[in-house]
Design a protein around this nucleic acid. Structure first.
Length: 714
DNA sequence: AGCACGCCGACT
DNA sequence: GTCGGCGTGCTC
């Protein structure tokens, strides 16, 4: 009989590794402990998943755990379970999730610098070294460099093998610049005691009291909170302050760092007891906040999706704010859906889970309505006026609205023009036969760039030269009436000379964008053109006039979520408007405005939802079916193509009723790797998605080199 | 992931 | 010959 441990390493592999636990470590090592163990030729730290006795040695050679550094508390069992469950749902290796749960100190890697030795210098001067090894040495001739710099400079994939051989021969020296590694203060887990009878907050509606009862019962459960932003914030603040009195931890998730701004009042009113957590924290603040949380001094954490992995316990309240925001899906790095992860973590700890949004996803609304867990706080009437125009944008600005805009500019007011096209015109068409230039892949109209006469697909990013004549009838091609940011800028500059027109859109570079944002904040930028990207960067309630330029055009995207996405964009744009009588919203559409645009502008979510749910029922989209997107990528397109065919074969065998939709085109333009194949699959229900995941896991067993990911739309 | 190993084309 | 690039498979 000997004691063994199953270890999970932070690697993109799905297996655990078995090690013998030496007697001298037996007293210290527990499930969740961080241990160091030999793996191949390396020594890696991993986490203990299981400790067990085995009466006989396994068939493979088992190594021994090397050490158990006492530099961090054990990961709680719930975090281990969380990582495993999330891995099963996302097909991301569980160890990568555990890595996200590590305390700051474990993640700060020592900085390594390389220096040339005397011997290396001699060797370099002798001129005997050629190729990569010579290049590396001559780079190091006059200064010390980091391995990453050399790797980028020389564009090699695997730098370590060269460095190892060079350092073995004594030609270079590896100097570890040990950071000032202050060990983390490890404090015992906080105890939550009820000191006095909890005081219920005042002015809470009946539904709020029911939520508090749920919180007190400790049985968990979830709900969807809708209504205006102000009302939701006020409501949540009361619930959170109440929870902080005597319950465990509260975690409030926001979709992006920028969105923490509106929670500042809560942070201030709970000063010291609430901290923020996201990827942009400085090392020292990260350490400070971690210590605050783990000593129990701070019990409220406001953060982005990475905060879900903080290993504090018990989590009694979990809020997912702005649940409609797609940034909750993490596509790069370990891929996972944070809204689903929130459900998993809340389920494991029986915490109360509150999703909140002004314009929730259609499926989410449906599920909570069915479950009776919908909580609508309503909204105040808005003061501003909304008008619709159907004429040409240029004409509109030059004639009808010129005087009004001029007047507003004189009063130093700020105006925002929201466009959803970056180029000059939204499309190129033939006035004779009605032909429209479309993207071959996505089948949607491509927008025209005036500068270089190129057509760009705003959906997949594909670019090609614009044809001069109509390929169907040979007639002249003309720019269409859906206008882009280039066109608008030209017009505004012409009509209001001497006024600077700011354009805030993706792809301008972070420095320039930052400058524009600052100018707008200072009140200097008065005429602002922006795409959806601008809505994430600008702060709310600044503008006295908002132009929605062709908000209807995104409805044509080949995407079942086009409706709810368009609605969410308009809702967000409306938050930019100053809520005053003199404010005005202008919607400019190419034809008569679609019903959805009217519903969005009057914030008639109910009306939108009823229409949309009918449409989804008819076309059998979620929530009436479950869509699963499967991505496959590897280093070459040929291999991912071959594997995708193999995968499809297996899926057809396992699921005869399976319906293939697509292939779907990648919407993410920043997703550089083109060697990815995507499949979209329809299943009758979410339960079936579980079986599909099992089948995908089976597939991955014999193809571990491919990156496989899934995204489920219930 | 990182590392070893083996295959293959290019170049002293 | 042998150097370096790249694909493949393994790590208890």
């Amino acid at each position: 009989m000997a004691t063994y441990c199953e270890i999970l390493f932070p690697l993109p592999v799905f297996q655990t590794f078995l090690y013998r636990l030496p007697d001298e470590l037996a007293a210290r090592v527990r499930v969740g402990s961080r241990v160091v163990a030999p793996l191949g030729s390396r020594k890696l730290s991993g986490y203990v998943l299981e400790i067990k006795e085995l009466s006989q040695e396994p068939e493979f050679r088992v190594k021994e755990i090397a050490a158990c550094p006492e530099d961090q508390p054990d990961l709680p069992g719930i975090i281990l379970q969380f990582a495993l469950e999330l891995s099963a749902r996302s097909l991301t290796a569980p160890g990568l999730f555990l890595e996200m749960a590590e305390p700051p100190a474990a993640r700060e890697k020592p900085r390594v610098k390389l220096a040339i030795t005397e011997k290396g210098l001699k060797e370099l001067l002798s001129g005997r070294l050629k190729g990569r090894r010579g290049q590396i040495l001559s780079l190091l001739a006059d200064r010390q460099l980091s391995p990453v710099y050399i790797k980028r400079k020389l564009k090699v994939r695997e730098i370590n093998s060269y460095l190892r051989s060079l350092s073995q021969e004594g030609l270079v020296e590896v100097r570890e610049k040990a950071g000032k590694k202050k060990p983390l203060k490890i404090t015992p887990a906080p105890v939550f005691r009820q000191l006095a009878l909890p005081v219920r907050p005042e002015g809470l509606p009946e539904s709020g009291h029911r939520l508090l009862q749920k919180l007190e019962s400790g049985e968990g459960g979830s709900c969807l909170l809708t209504g205006s932003q102000e009302r939701r914030l006020e409501f949540l603040q009361k619930i959170i302050e109440y929870a902080a009195q005597h319950h465990g931890f509260t975690l409030v998730l926001v979709p992006e760092i920028q969105r923490l701004e509106k929670w500042q009042p809560l942070l201030q009113s709970l000063s010291g007891r609430a901290v923020v957590w996201h990827s942009q924290l400085t090392d020292s603040l990260r350490r400070h906040n971690w210590n605050q949380i783990f000593s129990g001094r701070a019990r409220i954490v406001l953060g982005t999706r990475s905060a879900l992995f903080l290993p504090f316990q018990p989590l009694s309240l979990l809020v997912v704010d702005e649940e409609q925001d797609d940034l909750y899906y993490q596509a790069d790095g370990p891929a996972f859906e944070a809204r689903e992860a929130a459900r998993i973590r809340a389920g494991l700890e029986k915490s109360l889970l509150i999703y909140t949004s002004d314009c929730p996803r259609v499926s989410q609304f449906y599920h909570h309505r069915q479950a009776g867990s919908l909580l609508d706080l309503g909204r105040e009437e808005v003061c501003y006026r909304v008008d619709y125009y159907h004429q040409d944008l240029g004409r509109l600005l030059k004639k009808e609205l010129k005087e009004e805009i001029k007047h507003r500019l004189e009063k130093e007011e700020q105006l925002l023009f929201l466009v959803n096209r970056k180029g000059y015109a939204g499309y190129l068409f033939c006035s004779a036969c009605g032909f429209v230039a479309r993207c071959e892949q996505c089948r949607i109209a491509m927008s025209l760039q005036k500068k270089n006469g190129e057509l760009t697909c705003s959906y997949c990013g594909h670019t090609r030269e614009a044809p001069a004549d109509c390929p169907v009838c040979g007639g002249k091609l003309r720019p269409g009436r859906v206008r882009g940011s280039q066109y608008l800028r030209e017009q505004l500059q012409e009509i209001f000379p001497g006024k600077k027109v700011e354009v805030l859109e993706e792809g301008a570079g972070e420095k320039d964008s930052e400058k524009i944002v600052r100018r707008v904040k200072s009140g200097k930028g008065q005429l602002v053109i922006g795409t959806e990207y601008a809505l994430r960067r600008l702060s709310e309630g600044r503008f006295s006039m908002l132009f929605l330029v062709n908000p209807e055009s995104s409805l044509n995207l080949p995407d079942f979520q086009a409706g709810e996405r368009t609605l969410a964009t308009i809702y967000k744009a409306l938050e930019m408007v100053k809520n005053e009588d003199s404010s005005r919203v202008v919607a400019v559409t190419a034809g008569p405005e679609p019903e959805l645009v009217i519903q969005a502008l009057s914030r008639n979510y109910q009306g939108f939802w009823e229409k949309e749910i009918e449409y989804r029922r008819l076309l059998n989209y979620p929530p009436f079916s479950c869509l699963v997107e499967i991505g496959l990528d590897s280093r070459s397109l040929r291999t991912s193509g071959r594997w995708s065919r193999l995968l499809l074969e297996q899926l057809r065998l396992d699921f005869p009723e399976l319906e293939l939709i697509g292939p779907r085109i990648s919407r993410k333009k920043w997703r550089r790797e083109k060697r990815e194949v995507r499949l979209m699959v329809r299943l009758p229900s979410e339960e079936k998605a579980g079986n599909l995941l099992a089948s995908l896991k089976k597939f991955r067993q014999h193809r571990p080199a491919t990156r496989l990911w899934v995204r489920v739309w219930p």
